[in-house]
Simulated scan of single mutants.
Amino acid sequence: MNDELHARAVDTFIEAANASDPERRAALLGRALTDDIVFWGPLGRGVGREAVEDFISEVVQRHPSGACRMVRTTRVDAPDEWARYGWRYESATGEALLSGMDTIHVTPEGGIDEIVVFAGPLT
């Protein structure tokens, strides 16, 4: 495994989170995630690509501030099959609304099969 493979999967996932068209989002998630992905998000645990798609549609895409986007803020650090990266959720004007770090597990084929979301600063 290498950082480039992980970064490609992460960037495709973030592109999917920012896609407003549901068909494009589904296609991008199909490239980035395995069918049986385990997603540990701020609202709990979900299994399957549909759970991730539902989270994006219902939480990320419907923010009260209007059009928002996810941005990767760090390089993807991938010591082996696990990786981590920083992110920011920002308004259309670039105002940071939330930031955090995700830890992911990537299969040898390059699909993310587990995401653990850590949102907000550690205090």
Rank of each mutant, 00 (worst) to 15 (best):
N18F: 00
A27I: 07
A51K: 04
M1E: 12
M70P: 11
R88A: 15
I112Y: 01
A9K: 10
A16D: 11
T103A: 15
T107Y: 01
V52S: 06
R75K: 09
E4H: 07
E23F: 09
P64V: 13
A32V: 06
G86Q: 11
V106T: 14
D3K: 03
G94D: 07
W87C: 09
A119K: 15
G110Q: 10
Y89H: 15
R24W: 02
E81H: 08
H6M: 11
T12Q: 01
E109M: 13
S57W: 00
F55W: 12
A16S: 10
A78T: 11
S65M: 05
A83L: 14
L28I: 01
F55Q: 05
E50G: 12
D77G: 05
T103V: 15
G30P: 13
R72Q: 12
G41T: 06
A67G: 11
G41S: 13
D113Q: 08
W40G: 09
L33P: 04
V116Q: 02
G86Y: 13
G30S: 12
T107Q: 02
I115T: 11
I115N: 02
A32R: 08
A17H: 05
I112M: 03
F118G: 03
R8C: 09
A26Q: 09
H105K: 10
D35T: 01
T93M: 06
V117P: 03
R8E: 08
F39E: 02
D3T: 13
G111N: 12
I37F: 14
T34H: 00
T107M: 03
P22I: 07
I112S: 03
S20M: 11
Q61C: 00
L98Y: 10
G66H: 04
L43P: 03
S99L: 11
S65T: 06
I37W: 14
P42V: 08
E58L: 07
W87Q: 13
M1L: 13
M1I: 07
E114R: 15
A9V: 08
I115S: 02
L97S: 01
E58Q: 14
G86E: 12
P108A: 07
R25N: 07
F55G: 00
G94L: 05
E23R: 13
V116L: 02
V106N: 10
E95G: 08
D54H: 03
V10A: 01
Q61L: 00
G111H: 15
M1S: 11
N18G: 02
S57I: 02
F118R: 09
F118Y: 11
I104Q: 04
S57G: 07
R69V: 07
D11Y: 03
E114L: 13
R75L: 10
W82F: 12
P64S: 09
M1W: 11
R24Y: 00
V106Y: 08
R8G: 06
R72Y: 08
M1C: 11
F39Y: 12
